[in-house]
């Protein structure tokens, strides 16, 4: 996995390339944790694979940032990854976070 950092209009953009799994999930978690911006955007445009450890870490970070009044959002999600996230319920959890209930 390769991580590229950008800054755009006050938003931290973290581009993730390759495969996010159990073996490297801490690397992306570290990058998210050290950002200070209100909005952190994870760009999945060049992702080939994500496992449950990757999904779990992103949900945990989204929760943590939400408690701080900040936002984690994922953009450019390839269809096969979107399908997996939908099956797990990722987007429903994010909706609940935004509505601030049941979480």
């Amino acid at each position: 996995m390769e991580i590229r950092l950008q800054h755009r209009d006050g938003v931290a953009v973290i581009k993730v390339l390759g495969e996010l799994d159990y073996s490297n999930v801490e690397k992306l978690e570290f990058e998210i944790k050290r950002r200070w911006e209100k909005v952190i955007e994870i760009d999945f445009g060049n992702m080939r694979f994500i496992d449950s450890s990757g999904v779990g870490m992103l949900l945990n970070q989204a929760r943590r940032l939400h408690k701080q009044g900040r936002t984690l959002r994922i953009v450019n999600i390839p269809d096969f990854i979107r399908e997996n996230l939908e099956i797990i319920g990722y987007f429903q959890v994010m909706e609940c976070l935004e509505r601030n209930k049941n979480i």
Partner: peptide, 13 residues
């Protein structure tokens, strides 16, 4: 049928 994975929400959805 679909639903959110266990442990992600306090109540199953």
């Amino acid at each position: 049928c679909r639903g959110v994975a266990l442990g992600l929400l306090e109540d199953y959805l």
